[in-house]
Design a protein around this nucleic acid. Sequence first.
DNA 1: ATAATAATTGGCATTTTATGCCATAAAACT
DNA 2: AGTTTTATGGCATAAAATGCCAATTATTAT
Lengths: 155, 155
Amino acid sequence: MKLDGLDYRILDQLQANGRLTNVELSDKVNLSPSPCLRRVKQLEEEGIILGYRASLNRVALDLGMTVFVDLRLGHHGDQASSQFEASVLAMPNVISCYLVSGTADYRLEVVVKDLQHYELLLRQIQMLPFVKDIHSNFVIRAVKGESPLPLNTPT
Amino acid sequence: MKLDGLDYRILDQLQANGRLTNVELSDKVNLSPSPCLRRVKQLEEEGIILGYRASLNRVALDLGMTVFVDLRLGHHGDQASSQFEASVLAMPNVISCYLVSGTADYRLEVVVKDLQHYELLLRQIQMLPFVKDIHSNFVIRAVKGESPLPLNTPT
DNA sequence: ATAATAATTGGCATTTTATGCCATAAAACT
DNA sequence: AGTTTTATGGCATAAAATGCCAATTATTAT
Protein backbone atom coordinates (compact mmCIF):
# COMPACT_ATOMS: atom_id res chain seq x y z
CA MET A 1 0.00 0.00 0.00
CA LYS A 2 1.25 3.45 -0.92
CA LEU A 3 0.70 6.13 1.66
CA ASP A 4 0.36 9.76 0.72
CA GLY A 5 0.85 12.90 2.75
CA LEU A 6 -2.67 12.78 4.08
CA ASP A 7 -2.14 9.29 5.47
CA TYR A 8 1.02 10.42 7.18
CA ARG A 9 -0.70 13.39 8.71
CA ILE A 10 -3.46 11.11 9.97
CA LEU A 11 -0.92 8.73 11.48
CA ASP A 12 0.92 11.59 13.10
CA GLN A 13 -2.23 12.89 14.69
CA LEU A 14 -3.30 9.47 15.92
CA GLN A 15 0.12 8.82 17.37
CA ALA A 16 -0.24 12.02 19.35
CA ASN A 17 -3.87 11.45 20.32
CA GLY A 18 -5.38 8.10 19.57
CA ARG A 19 -8.80 9.18 20.76
CA LEU A 20 -9.42 12.09 18.46
CA THR A 21 -12.94 11.94 17.09
CA ASN A 22 -13.12 11.51 13.37
CA VAL A 23 -14.52 15.01 13.10
CA GLU A 24 -11.56 16.49 14.98
CA LEU A 25 -9.10 14.40 13.02
CA SER A 26 -10.57 15.34 9.66
CA ASP A 27 -10.39 18.97 10.67
CA LYS A 28 -6.73 18.71 11.70
CA VAL A 29 -5.70 17.10 8.43
CA ASN A 30 -7.92 19.29 6.26
CA LEU A 31 -10.23 16.67 4.89
CA SER A 32 -13.93 16.13 5.30
CA PRO A 33 -15.06 13.44 7.75
CA SER A 34 -16.14 10.78 5.25
CA PRO A 35 -12.89 10.24 3.37
CA CYS A 36 -10.96 10.71 6.59
CA LEU A 37 -12.80 7.86 8.25
CA ARG A 38 -12.32 5.69 5.17
CA ARG A 39 -8.59 6.26 5.28
CA VAL A 40 -8.36 5.45 8.98
CA LYS A 41 -10.31 2.24 8.48
CA GLN A 42 -8.07 1.24 5.63
CA LEU A 43 -4.93 1.97 7.65
CA GLU A 44 -6.34 -0.30 10.33
CA GLU A 45 -7.24 -3.04 7.87
CA GLU A 46 -3.85 -2.93 6.20
CA GLY A 47 -2.22 -3.38 9.58
CA ILE A 48 -0.45 -0.05 9.48
CA ILE A 49 -2.34 1.04 12.54
CA LEU A 50 -1.87 -1.92 14.87
CA GLY A 51 -4.13 -0.69 17.62
CA TYR A 52 -4.78 2.00 20.18
CA ARG A 53 -3.74 1.99 23.80
CA ALA A 54 -4.11 4.15 26.81
CA SER A 55 -0.80 5.22 28.27
CA LEU A 56 -0.80 5.04 32.07
CA ASN A 57 1.02 6.73 34.91
CA ARG A 58 3.37 4.11 36.32
CA VAL A 59 4.10 5.91 39.54
CA ALA A 60 0.41 6.32 40.31
CA LEU A 61 -0.07 2.62 39.72
CA ASP A 62 2.79 1.54 42.01
CA LEU A 63 5.11 0.65 39.17
CA GLY A 64 7.57 3.45 39.64
CA MET A 65 10.72 1.42 39.14
CA THR A 66 11.91 0.36 35.69
CA VAL A 67 14.84 -2.00 35.24
CA PHE A 68 16.57 -3.24 32.11
CA VAL A 69 17.71 -6.79 32.59
CA ASP A 70 20.36 -8.10 30.20
CA LEU A 71 21.05 -11.79 30.26
CA ARG A 72 22.58 -14.70 28.39
CA LEU A 73 21.42 -18.26 28.04
CA GLY A 74 23.67 -21.17 28.98
CA HIS A 75 22.57 -23.19 25.97
CA HIS A 76 21.56 -21.82 22.63
CA GLY A 77 19.35 -24.49 21.17
CA ASP A 78 15.83 -23.94 19.92
CA GLN A 79 14.49 -25.62 23.01
CA ALA A 80 16.40 -23.44 25.45
CA SER A 81 15.27 -20.31 23.65
CA SER A 82 11.64 -21.19 23.35
CA GLN A 83 11.40 -22.37 26.91
CA PHE A 84 12.98 -19.20 28.13
CA GLU A 85 10.79 -17.03 25.91
CA ALA A 86 7.64 -18.77 27.00
CA SER A 87 8.56 -18.17 30.63
CA VAL A 88 9.19 -14.50 29.98
CA LEU A 89 5.90 -14.10 28.13
CA ALA A 90 4.16 -15.42 31.21
CA MET A 91 5.70 -12.81 33.52
CA PRO A 92 3.47 -9.73 33.49
CA ASN A 93 6.09 -7.46 35.06
CA VAL A 94 8.33 -8.04 32.06
CA ILE A 95 6.78 -5.58 29.66
CA SER A 96 9.22 -6.09 26.82
CA CYS A 97 11.83 -8.63 25.79
CA TYR A 98 14.12 -8.42 22.80
CA LEU A 99 16.58 -10.83 21.33
CA VAL A 100 19.62 -8.65 20.71
CA SER A 101 23.07 -8.78 19.18
CA GLY A 102 26.15 -8.06 21.26
CA THR A 103 27.24 -9.29 24.65
CA ALA A 104 23.84 -10.18 25.97
CA ASP A 105 21.32 -12.47 24.36
CA TYR A 106 18.13 -10.96 25.69
CA ARG A 107 17.19 -7.58 26.98
CA LEU A 108 14.14 -7.33 29.21
CA GLU A 109 12.32 -4.26 30.44
CA VAL A 110 10.81 -4.85 33.82
CA VAL A 111 8.47 -2.68 35.87
CA VAL A 112 8.02 -3.08 39.61
CA LYS A 113 6.98 -1.05 42.60
CA ASP A 114 10.36 -0.84 44.31
CA LEU A 115 13.63 -2.61 45.04
CA GLN A 116 11.99 -5.11 47.33
CA HIS A 117 9.68 -6.25 44.60
CA TYR A 118 12.53 -6.22 42.14
CA GLU A 119 14.50 -8.61 44.29
CA LEU A 120 11.63 -11.07 44.16
CA LEU A 121 11.34 -10.76 40.42
CA LEU A 122 15.08 -11.11 39.93
CA ARG A 123 14.96 -14.37 41.85
CA GLN A 124 12.30 -15.62 39.47
CA ILE A 125 14.36 -14.62 36.47
CA GLN A 126 17.45 -16.32 37.88
CA MET A 127 15.50 -19.52 38.25
CA LEU A 128 14.30 -19.52 34.66
CA PRO A 129 15.68 -22.39 32.57
CA PHE A 130 19.13 -21.85 30.99
CA VAL A 131 19.57 -18.33 32.31
CA LYS A 132 23.15 -17.14 32.91
CA ASP A 133 24.94 -13.81 33.39
CA ILE A 134 22.23 -11.44 34.53
CA HIS A 135 22.92 -7.71 34.58
CA SER A 136 20.44 -5.24 35.99
CA ASN A 137 20.41 -1.63 34.91
CA PHE A 138 18.09 0.59 36.89
CA VAL A 139 16.36 3.50 35.25
CA ILE A 140 17.19 6.65 37.18
CA ARG A 141 15.23 9.00 34.96
CA ALA A 142 13.40 8.94 31.64
CA VAL A 143 14.84 11.66 29.44
CA LYS A 144 12.51 10.69 26.64
CA GLY A 145 9.96 7.94 26.54
CA GLU A 146 7.05 6.67 24.49
CA SER A 147 7.91 9.07 21.71
CA PRO A 148 6.01 8.86 18.45
CA LEU A 149 7.67 7.18 15.51
CA PRO A 150 9.36 9.59 13.13
CA LEU A 151 7.30 9.45 9.96
CA ASN A 152 9.12 10.34 6.79
CA THR A 153 6.41 12.47 5.30
CA PRO A 154 6.51 12.39 1.49
CA THR A 155 4.31 13.91 -1.27
CA MET B 1 -6.79 9.02 44.70
CA LYS B 2 -7.84 5.52 45.66
CA LEU B 3 -8.68 3.21 42.81
CA ASP B 4 -11.10 0.35 43.18
CA GLY B 5 -11.52 -2.80 41.15
CA LEU B 6 -13.74 -1.07 38.63
CA ASP B 7 -11.06 1.52 37.91
CA TYR B 8 -8.52 -1.21 37.40
CA ARG B 9 -10.78 -3.06 35.03
CA ILE B 10 -11.33 0.13 33.09
CA LEU B 11 -7.60 0.76 32.88
CA ASP B 12 -6.98 -2.80 31.77
CA GLN B 13 -9.52 -2.50 29.00
CA LEU B 14 -8.19 0.83 27.81
CA GLN B 15 -4.65 -0.46 27.82
CA ALA B 16 -5.78 -3.24 25.52
CA ASN B 17 -7.97 -1.05 23.34
CA GLY B 18 -7.78 2.68 23.80
CA ARG B 19 -10.54 3.31 21.32
CA LEU B 20 -13.32 1.36 22.93
CA THR B 21 -16.49 3.40 22.90
CA ASN B 22 -17.79 4.25 26.31
CA VAL B 23 -20.74 1.96 25.67
CA GLU B 24 -18.48 -0.98 24.87
CA LEU B 25 -16.24 -0.22 27.81
CA SER B 26 -19.11 0.07 30.25
CA ASP B 27 -20.40 -3.26 29.03
CA LYS B 28 -17.03 -4.97 29.48
CA VAL B 29 -16.64 -3.75 33.03
CA ASN B 30 -20.28 -4.31 33.98
CA LEU B 31 -21.27 -0.76 34.66
CA SER B 32 -23.75 1.51 32.97
CA PRO B 33 -22.38 4.14 30.58
CA SER B 34 -22.83 7.23 32.73
CA PRO B 35 -20.71 6.28 35.73
CA CYS B 36 -18.25 4.57 33.44
CA LEU B 37 -17.65 7.75 31.51
CA ARG B 38 -17.33 9.71 34.74
CA ARG B 39 -14.65 7.35 35.99
CA VAL B 40 -12.70 7.53 32.75
CA LYS B 41 -12.81 11.33 32.81
CA GLN B 42 -11.60 11.36 36.37
CA LEU B 43 -8.76 8.96 35.62
CA GLU B 44 -7.73 11.33 32.86
CA GLU B 45 -7.98 14.41 35.06
CA GLU B 46 -6.01 12.78 37.84
CA GLY B 47 -3.26 12.00 35.39
CA ILE B 48 -3.57 8.26 35.80
CA ILE B 49 -4.47 7.95 32.16
CA LEU B 50 -1.75 10.02 30.50
CA GLY B 51 -3.13 9.83 26.99
CA TYR B 52 -4.03 7.57 24.11
CA ARG B 53 -1.88 6.68 21.16
CA ALA B 54 -2.14 4.69 18.01
CA SER B 55 0.44 1.95 17.78
CA LEU B 56 1.94 1.71 14.30
CA ASN B 57 3.58 -0.95 12.18
CA ARG B 58 7.26 -0.03 12.05
CA VAL B 59 8.13 -2.28 9.15
CA ALA B 60 5.34 -0.85 7.02
CA LEU B 61 6.60 2.63 7.79
CA ASP B 62 10.21 1.89 6.87
CA LEU B 63 11.42 1.76 10.44
CA GLY B 64 12.10 -1.93 10.63
CA MET B 65 15.39 -1.71 12.50
CA THR B 66 15.58 -1.04 16.22
CA VAL B 67 18.88 -0.44 17.99
CA PHE B 68 19.69 0.07 21.64
CA VAL B 69 22.55 2.48 22.00
CA ASP B 70 24.38 2.51 25.31
CA LEU B 71 26.80 5.32 25.94
CA ARG B 72 28.76 7.25 28.53
CA LEU B 73 29.54 10.91 28.79
CA GLY B 74 33.10 12.16 29.08
CA HIS B 75 32.18 14.77 31.65
CA HIS B 76 29.44 14.46 34.21
CA GLY B 77 28.53 18.04 35.01
CA ASP B 78 25.06 19.47 34.78
CA GLN B 79 26.01 21.26 31.62
CA ALA B 80 27.29 18.17 29.85
CA SER B 81 24.16 16.24 30.78
CA SER B 82 21.67 18.87 29.78
CA GLN B 83 23.41 19.63 26.51
CA PHE B 84 23.47 15.97 25.65
CA GLU B 85 19.86 15.45 26.66
CA ALA B 86 18.68 18.42 24.65
CA SER B 87 20.43 17.03 21.59
CA VAL B 88 18.83 13.66 22.04
CA LEU B 89 15.39 15.18 22.48
CA ALA B 90 15.82 16.85 19.12
CA MET B 91 16.55 13.60 17.30
CA PRO B 92 13.26 12.07 16.18
CA ASN B 93 14.73 8.65 15.47
CA VAL B 94 15.65 8.34 19.12
CA ILE B 95 12.32 7.26 20.52
CA SER B 96 13.43 6.78 24.08
CA CYS B 97 16.36 7.75 26.27
CA TYR B 98 16.93 6.72 29.87
CA LEU B 99 19.53 7.70 32.40
CA VAL B 100 20.57 4.36 33.87
CA SER B 101 22.73 2.90 36.57
CA GLY B 102 25.54 0.51 35.73
CA THR B 103 28.28 0.63 33.15
CA ALA B 104 26.56 2.98 30.75
CA ASP B 105 25.15 6.38 31.55
CA TYR B 106 22.41 6.56 28.97
CA ARG B 107 20.45 4.02 27.06
CA LEU B 108 18.78 5.09 23.84
CA GLU B 109 16.26 3.26 21.72
CA VAL B 110 16.65 4.18 18.09
CA VAL B 111 14.49 3.28 15.10
CA VAL B 112 15.72 3.43 11.52
CA LYS B 113 15.01 1.91 8.14
CA ASP B 114 18.18 -0.14 7.82
CA LEU B 115 21.89 -0.35 8.55
CA GLN B 116 22.74 2.40 6.10
CA HIS B 117 20.49 4.81 7.90
CA TYR B 118 21.79 3.60 11.21
CA GLU B 119 25.31 4.43 10.20
CA LEU B 120 24.28 8.00 9.52
CA LEU B 121 22.49 8.26 12.83
CA LEU B 122 25.41 6.72 14.72
CA ARG B 123 27.67 9.38 13.25
CA GLN B 124 25.34 12.05 14.58
CA ILE B 125 25.33 10.47 18.01
CA GLN B 126 29.11 10.20 18.04
CA MET B 127 29.38 13.88 17.32
CA LEU B 128 27.10 14.86 20.16
CA PRO B 129 28.84 16.85 22.92
CA PHE B 130 30.68 14.82 25.61
CA VAL B 131 29.71 11.44 24.16
CA LYS B 132 32.10 8.55 24.81
CA ASP B 133 32.00 4.75 24.69
CA ILE B 134 29.13 3.97 22.39
CA HIS B 135 27.81 0.42 22.23
CA SER B 136 25.15 -0.60 19.73
CA ASN B 137 22.89 -3.55 20.32
CA PHE B 138 20.71 -4.50 17.40
CA VAL B 139 17.30 -5.94 17.96
CA ILE B 140 17.07 -9.24 16.17
CA ARG B 141 13.54 -10.04 17.23
CA ALA B 142 10.92 -8.74 19.61
CA VAL B 143 9.85 -11.56 21.89
CA LYS B 144 7.47 -9.24 23.72
CA GLY B 145 6.83 -5.58 23.13
CA GLU B 146 4.46 -2.81 24.08
CA SER B 147 2.89 -5.02 26.71
CA PRO B 148 0.31 -3.56 29.03
CA LEU B 149 1.36 -2.64 32.54
CA PRO B 150 0.58 -5.33 35.10
CA LEU B 151 -2.14 -3.83 37.28
CA ASN B 152 -2.34 -5.17 40.80
CA THR B 153 -6.09 -5.49 40.98
CA PRO B 154 -7.33 -4.98 44.56
CA THR B 155 -10.81 -4.85 46.20
C1' DA C 1 -28.00 -1.16 65.33
C1' DT C 2 -30.07 2.98 63.37
C1' DA C 3 -30.42 7.22 61.32
C1' DA C 4 -28.39 10.87 58.77
C1' DT C 5 -25.19 12.10 55.28
C1' DA C 6 -22.40 11.53 51.40
C1' DA C 7 -21.06 9.30 47.26
C1' DT C 8 -22.23 6.54 43.30
C1' DT C 9 -25.26 4.71 40.19
C1' DG C 10 -28.76 4.16 36.28
C1' DG C 11 -31.90 6.03 33.07
C1' DC C 12 -33.48 9.62 30.16
C1' DA C 13 -33.24 13.73 26.93
C1' DT C 14 -30.18 16.33 24.10
C1' DT C 15 -26.18 17.09 21.48
C1' DT C 16 -22.48 15.35 19.02
C1' DT C 17 -20.30 11.84 16.28
C1' DA C 18 -20.01 7.78 13.23
C1' DT C 19 -21.44 5.50 9.23
C1' DG C 20 -23.35 4.23 4.70
C1' DC C 21 -24.81 5.97 0.30
C1' DC C 22 -24.65 8.69 -3.83
C1' DA C 23 -23.55 12.34 -6.95
C1' DT C 24 -19.57 15.02 -8.19
C1' DA C 25 -14.81 16.05 -8.85
C1' DA C 26 -10.16 14.75 -9.41
C1' DA C 27 -6.67 11.65 -11.15
C1' DA C 28 -4.78 8.04 -14.03
C1' DC C 29 -4.57 5.74 -18.24
C1' DT C 30 -4.94 5.09 -23.29
C1' DA D 1 -8.80 14.65 -25.43
C1' DG D 2 -11.75 10.98 -23.85
C1' DT D 3 -12.54 7.13 -20.88
C1' DT D 4 -12.06 4.66 -16.74
C1' DT D 5 -10.85 4.52 -12.07
C1' DT D 6 -10.44 6.47 -7.59
C1' DA D 7 -11.26 9.70 -4.05
C1' DT D 8 -14.06 13.36 -2.20
C1' DG D 9 -17.96 15.94 0.06
C1' DG D 10 -22.57 16.19 1.62
C1' DC D 11 -26.62 14.26 3.38
C1' DA D 12 -29.63 11.06 6.05
C1' DT D 13 -29.67 7.68 9.58
C1' DA D 14 -27.85 5.14 13.40
C1' DA D 15 -24.96 5.13 17.32
C1' DA D 16 -22.51 7.29 21.00
C1' DA D 17 -21.36 10.94 24.28
C1' DT D 18 -22.88 14.06 27.64
C1' DG D 19 -25.46 16.44 31.28
C1' DC D 20 -29.08 16.11 34.61
C1' DC D 21 -31.82 14.09 38.29
C1' DA D 22 -34.00 10.66 41.02
C1' DA D 23 -32.87 6.42 43.32
C1' DT D 24 -29.75 3.29 45.31
C1' DT D 25 -25.78 2.10 47.87
C1' DA D 26 -22.09 3.00 50.97
C1' DT D 27 -20.26 5.70 54.95
C1' DT D 28 -20.26 7.94 59.20
C1' DA D 29 -21.74 9.30 63.50
C1' DT D 30 -24.69 8.65 67.25
